[in-house]
Nucleic acid binder design. Sequence first.
DNA 1: TATTGTTATACTCTATAACTATA
DNA 2: TATAGTTATAGAGTATAACAATA
Lengths: 143, 143
Amino acid sequence: MAKNYLRSIRLLSECMQLFELASARTVRQFGLTHSQFDIIATLGNTPGMTCKELGEKTLITKGTLTGVLDRLEQKGWIQRERGNDDRRQLFIRLTAEGERLFDEVFPQVVATGARRFTDYADEDFDTLEQALIKLKQHLSDAV
Amino acid sequence: MAKNYLRSIRLLSECMQLFELASARTVRQFGLTHSQFDIIATLGNTPGMTCKELGEKTLITKGTLTGVLDRLEQKGWIQRERGNDDRRQLFIRLTAEGERLFDEVFPQVVATGARRFTDYADEDFDTLEQALIKLKQHLSDAV
DNA sequence: TATTGTTATACTCTATAACTATA
DNA sequence: TATAGTTATAGAGTATAACAATA
Protein backbone atom coordinates (compact mmCIF):
# COMPACT_ATOMS: atom_id res chain seq x y z
CA MET A 1 0.00 0.00 0.00
CA ALA A 2 2.71 2.47 0.97
CA LYS A 3 4.33 2.15 -2.42
CA ASN A 4 1.13 2.93 -4.29
CA TYR A 5 0.57 5.87 -2.07
CA LEU A 6 4.06 7.27 -2.53
CA ARG A 7 3.77 6.97 -6.28
CA SER A 8 0.47 8.82 -6.31
CA ILE A 9 1.70 11.58 -4.06
CA ARG A 10 4.84 12.02 -6.12
CA LEU A 11 2.72 12.31 -9.26
CA LEU A 12 0.45 14.78 -7.52
CA SER A 13 3.39 16.88 -6.49
CA GLU A 14 5.00 16.74 -9.93
CA CYS A 15 1.79 17.87 -11.60
CA MET A 16 1.49 20.78 -9.20
CA GLN A 17 5.10 21.78 -9.82
CA LEU A 18 4.64 21.70 -13.58
CA PHE A 19 1.53 23.75 -13.31
CA GLU A 20 2.96 26.28 -10.88
CA LEU A 21 6.07 26.72 -12.98
CA ALA A 22 3.93 28.33 -15.66
CA SER A 23 1.63 30.33 -13.40
CA ALA A 24 4.51 31.62 -11.27
CA ARG A 25 6.03 33.25 -14.31
CA THR A 26 2.79 35.03 -15.15
CA VAL A 27 2.22 36.05 -11.55
CA ARG A 28 5.70 37.47 -11.21
CA GLN A 29 5.31 39.53 -14.36
CA PHE A 30 2.64 41.44 -12.48
CA GLY A 31 5.00 42.06 -9.58
CA LEU A 32 3.16 39.64 -7.32
CA THR A 33 4.51 36.88 -5.12
CA HIS A 34 2.69 33.58 -4.76
CA SER A 35 1.17 34.58 -1.42
CA GLN A 36 0.10 37.94 -2.74
CA PHE A 37 -1.57 36.40 -5.77
CA ASP A 38 -3.25 33.92 -3.50
CA ILE A 39 -4.82 36.75 -1.55
CA ILE A 40 -5.82 38.78 -4.61
CA ALA A 41 -7.38 35.67 -6.13
CA THR A 42 -9.21 34.85 -2.90
CA LEU A 43 -10.60 38.37 -2.59
CA GLY A 44 -11.55 38.64 -6.27
CA ASN A 45 -15.30 38.60 -6.93
CA THR A 46 -16.16 38.80 -3.23
CA PRO A 47 -17.37 41.70 -1.10
CA GLY A 48 -14.31 41.17 1.12
CA MET A 49 -13.72 39.18 4.28
CA THR A 50 -12.05 39.34 7.68
CA CYS A 51 -8.36 38.61 8.24
CA LYS A 52 -9.33 35.46 10.05
CA GLU A 53 -11.33 34.16 7.10
CA LEU A 54 -8.62 35.17 4.66
CA GLY A 55 -6.01 33.40 6.74
CA GLU A 56 -8.07 30.22 6.85
CA LYS A 57 -8.59 30.18 3.11
CA THR A 58 -5.00 30.88 2.17
CA LEU A 59 -3.41 28.93 5.02
CA ILE A 60 -1.34 31.97 5.97
CA THR A 61 -0.99 32.47 9.72
CA LYS A 62 -2.13 35.75 11.20
CA GLY A 63 1.29 37.15 12.02
CA THR A 64 2.47 36.55 8.48
CA LEU A 65 -0.78 37.80 7.00
CA THR A 66 -0.31 41.25 8.51
CA GLY A 67 2.96 41.67 6.63
CA VAL A 68 1.61 40.43 3.32
CA LEU A 69 -1.45 42.68 3.64
CA ASP A 70 0.80 45.64 4.50
CA ARG A 71 2.61 45.24 1.19
CA LEU A 72 -0.61 44.88 -0.77
CA GLU A 73 -2.11 47.93 0.95
CA GLN A 74 1.01 49.94 0.26
CA LYS A 75 0.63 49.21 -3.44
CA GLY A 76 -3.00 50.30 -3.28
CA TRP A 77 -4.51 46.93 -4.13
CA ILE A 78 -6.41 46.21 -0.90
CA GLN A 79 -7.94 48.22 1.88
CA ARG A 80 -8.66 47.49 5.51
CA GLU A 81 -11.88 48.58 7.13
CA ARG A 82 -12.76 48.22 10.79
CA GLY A 83 -15.86 46.07 11.38
CA ASN A 84 -19.04 47.63 12.70
CA ASP A 85 -20.63 44.73 14.57
CA ASP A 86 -17.37 43.53 16.04
CA ARG A 87 -14.80 46.28 16.24
CA ARG A 88 -11.96 43.79 16.62
CA GLN A 89 -12.41 42.58 13.07
CA LEU A 90 -10.91 44.11 9.98
CA PHE A 91 -12.61 43.65 6.63
CA ILE A 92 -10.18 43.29 3.80
CA ARG A 93 -11.26 43.94 0.26
CA LEU A 94 -9.84 44.84 -3.11
CA THR A 95 -9.67 48.51 -4.06
CA ALA A 96 -10.83 49.54 -7.53
CA GLU A 97 -7.24 49.21 -8.64
CA GLY A 98 -6.97 45.84 -6.96
CA GLU A 99 -10.01 44.65 -8.87
CA ARG A 100 -8.50 45.88 -12.09
CA LEU A 101 -5.38 43.89 -11.27
CA PHE A 102 -7.44 40.82 -10.48
CA ASP A 103 -9.38 41.15 -13.74
CA GLU A 104 -6.13 41.29 -15.63
CA VAL A 105 -3.89 38.80 -13.89
CA PHE A 106 -6.38 36.08 -13.03
CA PRO A 107 -7.60 35.31 -16.56
CA GLN A 108 -4.03 35.37 -17.75
CA VAL A 109 -2.94 32.81 -15.19
CA VAL A 110 -5.94 30.72 -16.14
CA ALA A 111 -5.11 31.06 -19.82
CA THR A 112 -1.49 30.08 -19.29
CA GLY A 113 -2.67 26.99 -17.50
CA ALA A 114 -5.43 26.23 -19.97
CA ARG A 115 -2.98 26.24 -22.85
CA ARG A 116 -1.54 23.11 -21.32
CA PHE A 117 -4.81 21.29 -21.54
CA THR A 118 -5.27 21.26 -25.28
CA ASP A 119 -6.56 17.87 -26.39
CA TYR A 120 -7.71 17.08 -22.90
CA ALA A 121 -11.12 15.57 -23.49
CA ASP A 122 -14.16 16.02 -21.28
CA GLU A 123 -13.95 12.42 -20.18
CA ASP A 124 -10.32 12.90 -19.21
CA PHE A 125 -11.40 15.71 -16.95
CA ASP A 126 -14.21 13.64 -15.54
CA THR A 127 -11.92 10.76 -14.69
CA LEU A 128 -9.33 13.03 -13.13
CA GLU A 129 -11.94 14.94 -11.21
CA GLN A 130 -13.62 11.85 -9.80
CA ALA A 131 -10.29 10.46 -8.66
CA LEU A 132 -9.30 13.73 -7.04
CA ILE A 133 -12.63 14.19 -5.33
CA LYS A 134 -12.28 10.77 -3.80
CA LEU A 135 -8.73 11.52 -2.75
CA LYS A 136 -9.69 14.83 -1.22
CA GLN A 137 -12.50 13.19 0.70
CA HIS A 138 -10.05 10.71 2.18
CA LEU A 139 -7.45 13.30 3.02
CA SER A 140 -10.04 15.49 4.73
CA ASP A 141 -11.61 12.70 6.73
CA ALA A 142 -8.33 11.39 7.97
CA VAL A 143 -7.39 14.59 9.81
CA MET B 1 -13.10 23.60 -21.13
CA ALA B 2 -11.63 26.30 -18.93
CA LYS B 3 -14.14 25.54 -16.21
CA ASN B 4 -13.27 21.87 -16.11
CA TYR B 5 -9.66 22.74 -15.97
CA LEU B 6 -10.06 25.22 -13.14
CA ARG B 7 -12.02 22.72 -11.12
CA SER B 8 -9.37 20.05 -11.58
CA ILE B 9 -6.53 22.37 -10.71
CA ARG B 10 -8.32 23.60 -7.63
CA LEU B 11 -8.85 20.01 -6.53
CA LEU B 12 -5.22 19.21 -7.23
CA SER B 13 -4.09 22.13 -5.17
CA GLU B 14 -6.46 21.33 -2.30
CA CYS B 15 -5.23 17.75 -2.15
CA MET B 16 -1.64 18.90 -2.05
CA GLN B 17 -2.42 21.39 0.71
CA LEU B 18 -4.16 18.76 2.79
CA PHE B 19 -1.29 16.40 2.33
CA GLU B 20 1.39 18.95 3.04
CA LEU B 21 -0.36 20.17 6.14
CA ALA B 22 0.34 16.83 7.76
CA SER B 23 3.83 16.29 6.41
CA ALA B 24 4.91 19.84 7.25
CA ARG B 25 4.19 19.21 10.89
CA THR B 26 6.29 16.07 10.93
CA VAL B 27 9.09 17.72 9.00
CA ARG B 28 9.21 20.68 11.34
CA GLN B 29 9.41 18.43 14.36
CA PHE B 30 12.78 17.36 13.04
CA GLY B 31 13.91 20.96 12.72
CA LEU B 32 13.75 20.89 8.94
CA THR B 33 12.20 23.37 6.55
CA HIS B 34 10.36 22.22 3.47
CA SER B 35 13.34 22.92 1.20
CA GLN B 36 15.72 21.18 3.55
CA PHE B 37 13.54 18.10 3.71
CA ASP B 38 13.23 18.16 -0.05
CA ILE B 39 17.00 17.97 -0.32
CA ILE B 40 17.44 15.29 2.32
CA ALA B 41 14.73 13.23 0.64
CA THR B 42 16.31 13.70 -2.78
CA LEU B 43 19.74 12.65 -1.53
CA GLY B 44 18.44 9.70 0.46
CA ASN B 45 19.34 6.29 -0.96
CA THR B 46 21.64 7.78 -3.58
CA PRO B 47 25.45 7.98 -3.77
CA GLY B 48 25.08 11.78 -3.99
CA MET B 49 24.89 14.18 -6.89
CA THR B 50 26.15 17.54 -8.11
CA CYS B 51 24.60 20.84 -7.09
CA LYS B 52 23.32 21.26 -10.61
CA GLU B 53 21.49 17.97 -10.54
CA LEU B 54 20.16 18.63 -7.06
CA GLY B 55 18.91 22.03 -8.16
CA GLU B 56 17.12 20.57 -11.15
CA LYS B 57 15.38 17.93 -9.07
CA THR B 58 14.26 20.23 -6.29
CA LEU B 59 13.61 23.27 -8.50
CA ILE B 60 15.82 25.38 -6.24
CA THR B 61 17.97 27.88 -8.12
CA LYS B 62 21.73 27.74 -7.61
CA GLY B 63 22.10 30.92 -5.58
CA THR B 64 19.43 29.77 -3.17
CA LEU B 65 20.77 26.26 -3.09
CA THR B 66 24.12 27.39 -1.73
CA GLY B 67 22.41 28.89 1.31
CA VAL B 68 20.22 25.89 1.98
CA LEU B 69 23.20 23.54 1.64
CA ASP B 70 25.23 25.76 3.98
CA ARG B 71 22.66 25.27 6.72
CA LEU B 72 22.47 21.53 6.14
CA GLU B 73 26.25 21.26 6.16
CA GLN B 74 26.47 23.28 9.35
CA LYS B 75 24.16 20.81 11.03
CA GLY B 76 26.33 17.96 9.81
CA TRP B 77 23.74 16.35 7.59
CA ILE B 78 25.40 16.75 4.20
CA GLN B 79 28.92 17.11 2.89
CA ARG B 80 30.41 18.71 -0.18
CA GLU B 81 33.16 17.03 -2.11
CA ARG B 82 35.02 18.51 -5.07
CA GLY B 83 34.68 16.44 -8.25
CA ASN B 84 37.69 14.65 -9.71
CA ASP B 85 36.87 14.60 -13.42
CA ASP B 86 35.55 18.13 -13.44
CA ARG B 87 36.95 20.21 -10.61
CA ARG B 88 34.19 22.80 -10.97
CA GLN B 89 31.61 20.36 -9.73
CA LEU B 90 30.70 19.65 -6.13
CA PHE B 91 29.23 16.33 -5.13
CA ILE B 92 26.70 16.61 -2.38
CA ARG B 93 25.83 13.64 -0.27
CA LEU B 94 24.38 12.75 3.08
CA THR B 95 26.78 12.20 5.96
CA ALA B 96 26.27 9.17 8.21
CA GLU B 97 24.24 11.41 10.47
CA GLY B 98 22.29 12.73 7.50
CA GLU B 99 21.40 9.20 6.52
CA ARG B 100 20.28 8.47 10.02
CA LEU B 101 18.04 11.53 9.85
CA PHE B 102 16.69 10.43 6.48
CA ASP B 103 15.97 6.95 7.78
CA GLU B 104 14.05 8.43 10.66
CA VAL B 105 12.18 11.34 9.15
CA PHE B 106 11.31 9.93 5.75
CA PRO B 107 9.35 6.88 6.92
CA GLN B 108 7.59 9.03 9.45
CA VAL B 109 6.46 11.50 6.82
CA VAL B 110 5.37 8.57 4.71
CA ALA B 111 3.53 7.02 7.64
CA THR B 112 1.76 10.26 8.45
CA GLY B 113 0.64 10.44 4.87
CA ALA B 114 -0.21 6.77 4.64
CA ARG B 115 -2.48 6.98 7.64
CA ARG B 116 -4.74 9.10 5.47
CA PHE B 117 -5.09 6.37 2.92
CA THR B 118 -6.77 3.73 5.01
CA ASP B 119 -9.55 2.10 3.00
CA TYR B 120 -8.00 3.32 -0.21
CA ALA B 121 -8.28 0.25 -2.42
CA ASP B 122 -5.72 -0.83 -5.00
CA GLU B 123 -8.11 0.08 -7.80
CA ASP B 124 -8.57 3.54 -6.32
CA PHE B 125 -4.84 4.00 -6.54
CA ASP B 126 -4.81 2.67 -10.08
CA THR B 127 -7.49 5.06 -11.23
CA LEU B 128 -5.86 8.02 -9.56
CA GLU B 129 -2.46 7.08 -10.89
CA GLN B 130 -3.62 6.66 -14.47
CA ALA B 131 -5.39 10.01 -14.40
CA LEU B 132 -2.35 11.73 -12.93
CA ILE B 133 0.05 10.11 -15.37
CA LYS B 134 -2.03 11.37 -18.25
CA LEU B 135 -2.20 14.82 -16.70
CA LYS B 136 1.52 14.93 -16.13
CA GLN B 137 2.16 13.90 -19.70
CA HIS B 138 0.06 16.77 -20.93
CA LEU B 139 1.58 19.31 -18.63
CA SER B 140 5.09 18.25 -19.63
CA ASP B 141 4.42 18.27 -23.36
CA ALA B 142 2.80 21.67 -23.29
CA VAL B 143 5.90 23.44 -22.04
C1' DT C 1 -11.19 35.33 29.95
C1' DA C 2 -11.24 34.68 24.95
C1' DT C 3 -10.66 36.53 20.37
C1' DT C 4 -8.95 39.70 16.47
C1' DG C 5 -5.36 41.56 14.63
C1' DT C 6 -0.58 43.96 15.27
C1' DT C 7 4.23 44.11 16.63
C1' DA C 8 8.74 42.24 17.44
C1' DT C 9 12.14 38.79 16.65
C1' DA C 10 14.92 35.78 14.37
C1' DC C 11 15.49 32.91 10.59
C1' DT C 12 14.81 31.01 5.97
C1' DC C 13 13.82 31.28 1.29
C1' DT C 14 13.80 33.82 -3.02
C1' DA C 15 15.64 35.93 -7.50
C1' DT C 16 19.19 38.30 -9.52
C1' DA C 17 23.63 39.74 -10.78
C1' DA C 18 28.49 39.90 -10.21
C1' DC C 19 32.21 36.96 -9.19
C1' DT C 20 35.89 32.88 -8.98
C1' DA C 21 37.65 28.73 -10.68
C1' DT C 22 37.74 25.64 -13.77
C1' DA C 23 36.82 23.80 -18.66
C1' DT D 1 33.71 31.69 -24.08
C1' DA D 2 30.94 28.71 -21.30
C1' DT D 3 29.87 26.28 -17.05
C1' DA D 4 29.70 25.11 -11.78
C1' DG D 5 29.14 27.01 -7.80
C1' DT D 6 29.73 31.12 -4.37
C1' DT D 7 28.92 35.72 -2.74
C1' DA D 8 26.34 39.91 -2.16
C1' DT D 9 22.05 42.26 -2.00
C1' DA D 10 17.51 43.33 -1.11
C1' DG D 11 13.13 41.63 -0.47
C1' DA D 12 9.61 38.50 1.14
C1' DG D 13 7.64 34.69 3.68
C1' DT D 14 7.64 31.92 8.03
C1' DA D 15 6.59 30.61 13.03
C1' DT D 16 6.27 32.19 17.44
C1' DA D 17 5.31 34.87 21.37
C1' DA D 18 3.96 39.07 23.57
C1' DC D 19 0.73 42.71 23.11
C1' DA D 20 -3.57 46.11 22.56
C1' DA D 21 -8.25 46.59 21.79
C1' DT D 22 -12.55 44.66 21.98
C1' DA D 23 -15.96 41.10 23.22
